[in-house]
Design a protein around this nucleic acid. Structure first.
Length: 564
RNA sequence: GCGCCCGUAGCUCAAUGGAUAGAGCAUCUGACUACGGAUCAGAAGGUUAGAGGUUCGAGUCCUCUCGGGCGCGCCA
């Protein structure tokens, strides 16, 4: 019965297409005086907050009323009569100013469980960005010290953005720009040397305890370094110390489940000729000029406050010169979109980076994207913790993970949008980590895993037993199915908006829907009872829920434990 | 001074112009001799900082005011 099978399933995507079809048909039949071109290509079909408003609701009649010159309820009326004839749709109501409230047949909704189980890890993957190559650059901390809490938010969020984009079909490179060149590096080398020799750390140098540890390590690795003449000696300290520090950053990030594809060295940028290529591109585009003995980029052509110097009067390149070359290099490496994650203290860079893209002949609205994240504030004992290296209360990424674990740390940082400042209560995070919503979500996954294990122990092979979706008629089953069906749309929105926190919030909603279902719907047959078709149908639903939780958690880089 | 971000329940925060603004924590009251109680059911808690505007509809968009964070180098 191919016909029945085709009509049996009704995912939100299919429903949206069905509603749109009703509009197009109504126009073709002359019921609506509308240009088909004004019908949105994607009709919005959303799950109403109030369950009394049906499984799905659409505002399409409200949108079309004005262009059609007809009252919204009249538009709703004629769409409703068409939709009522569609197989899989149980009822259509008109509510409020002209909303269409749709209720699906239990079977049409329940088939979603099969769809999800069959899709497996692919459920939630969408094709929104298929064929797009995206470069996501984040953290890019100086390799002159450990990663601190300020970097940690980007470590979690940047990686989650990359994962979300991958789930949406993009090819993604996670990139870390290593500032291994310039004055800061020299200060770093001289600071390590000073600690090794017991002399005074230079002005503007690095004072942290880790510098002493680096000094000991460098000397231990090769004591002859102390015999070198200057400047080879401090330069050697710089080189060896830099590699040790960089390796430490990599190790910490790997442990944090954030794996970079590219560690791009600023030195390489210069030695590879990328700077020359970058300048060449900018010159071609006609935005470079000379004034006051310096070479400038006319970024004011594109919304920047002032023009920027590329080459100083003394012939030295500015940091900005590296930025421009780096951007051009990314584009030459084939990335369509270059995303930068910067802290709020760098928001002044947004316009100038966008101007760089424009000066290079690109479209700043397409090829470059600068995301500004607000800083993380920490509260401990009810008081704000001011993080400063000098005060010695710097909290590193490593510290946070040691205290709360990778999953809780990542989740806490990802579940909030980055454009609002975040206050983390260390006491809450550390001592009462069970209150972290990540455990609520993981618990749902572990709980389902347990049910499926028990089913297996009872010798139940639900996959091989017929699945009757129409049996999933309980309101909590319908609610759970409704939430399950949202993952593809949540993933699309999270990818488009670069907002992985939406996935986290969705998972919390899903976990709630599961727990509510589980509370009142017995899944396995009680002792001494026969296996009923309803038990099997609910096992399919459980499997679908578990798969969806696992897929969502995977996109956040958070584990989906089978036991906890 | 100019620019960007933010202001939602006691606290931490959601809500892509949609219906009665939602969660968690904290407070109070309930639910397992059946599948994991890290759960569930319920109560209480709001002039979405304030004032105008745009429209069928504004926490969301526009203007102004107030309050908070951050930034405005031929530094890196």
């Amino acid at each position: 019965m191919g016909h029945a099978d085709r009509l049996a399933r009704m995912t939100p995507e299919q429903l949206a297409a069905t509603v749109r079809g009703a509009v197009v048909d109504a126009i073709a039949a002359g019921e609506l005086a509308l240009d088909p071109a004004v019908v949105p290509t994607e009709v919005v079909v959303e799950r109403p907050r109030n369950p009394e408003h049906g499984d799905y609701a659409t505002n399409i009649a409200l949108q079309l009323a004005k262009p059609a010159g007809v009252p919204p309820r009249a538009v709703a009326e004629l769409l409703a009569s068409r939709l009522r004839t569609v197989a899989g749709i149980a009822s259509v109501d008109i509510a409020g100013p002209g909303f269409l409230n749709l209720v699906l047949d239990a079977a049409a909704l329940g088939e979603l469980a099969r769809t999800i189980v069959e899709a497996g890890e692919d459920f939630g993957r969408v094709a929104r960005y298929a064929g797009t190559a995206v470069n996501v650059e984040f953290i890019s901390a100086n390799p002159t010290g450990p990663l601190h809490l300020g970097h940690t938010r980007w470590a979690a969020v940047g990686d989650a953005i990359a994962r979300v984009l991958e789930a949406a079909g993009a090819t993604v490179a996670r990139e870390f720009y290593v500032n291994d060149r310039g004055v800061q590096m020299d200060k770093f080398g001289q600071s390590i040397e000073a600690r090794a020799l017991g002399t005074e750390v230079p002005d503007g140098g690095y004072f942290g305890e880790y510098v002493e540890e680096l000094a000991r390590e460098v000397v231990r690795a090769d004591p002859s370094i102390l015999e070198l003449p200057e400047p080879e000696r401090w330069q050697s300290f710089r080189e060896v110390g830099y590699l040790l520090q960089l390796a430490q950053q990599k190790a910490v990030l790997d442990a944090f489940n954030t794996h970079f594809d590219v560690w791009y060295s600023e030195r390489t940028l210069h030695s590879s000729g990328a700077v020359d290529r970058g300048f060449e591109r900018l010159r071609e585009q006609g935005h470079m000029f000379e004034a006051d003995g310096a070479v400038w980029l006319r970024t004011t052509d594109f919304d920047d406050d002032k023009d920027r110097v590329l080459v100083k009067a003394d012939g030295e390149l500015t940091y900005f010169a590296s930025d421009t070359a780096y951007y051009v290099d990314k584009r030459l490496r084939g990335f369509d979109v270059c995303i930068y994650l910067l802290g709020a203290d760098h928001h002044g860079y947004v316009n100038r980076l966008r101007a760089v893209a424009a000066c290079a002949g690109d479209d700043p609205d397409i090829n470059i994207e600068v995301l500004i994240g607000q800083l993380v504030k920490m509260v401990k004992g009810g008081e704000e913790v001011r993080l400063s290296k000098r005060a010695g209360n710097m909290i590193t990424l490593e510290d946070l993970v040691d205290e709360v674990g990778v999953d809780a740390a990542r989740y806490s940082l990802i579940r909030y949008p980055v454009d609002s400042p975040l206050t983390l209560d260390l006491d809450l995070l550390v001592q009462r980590s069970n209150d972290n919503p990540v455990f609520y979500v993981q618990y749902a996954h572990a709980r389902i895993s347990s049910v499926l294990r028990n089913a297996s122990d009872l010798g139940i092979d639900w996959r091989a037993t017929g699945f009757d979706a129409s049996l999933l008629s309980h309101e909590r089953e319908a609610a759970l199915l409704g939430v399950l069906g949202e993952l593809p749309r949540v993933m699309t929105a999270a990818a488009e908006l670069r907002e992985p926190h939406r996935v986290a919030r969705y998972l919390e909603e899903l976990a709630t829907a599961y727990h509510k279902f589980y509370d009142v719907c017995r899944v396995l047959p009680p002792a001494d009872a026969e296996l009923e078709p309803l038990n099997v149908a609910r096992l399919w639903l459980c499997a679908a829920a578990r798969q969806t939780l696992a897929n969502g958690l995977g996109v956040l880089g958070v584990g989906a434990p089978e036991r906890m």
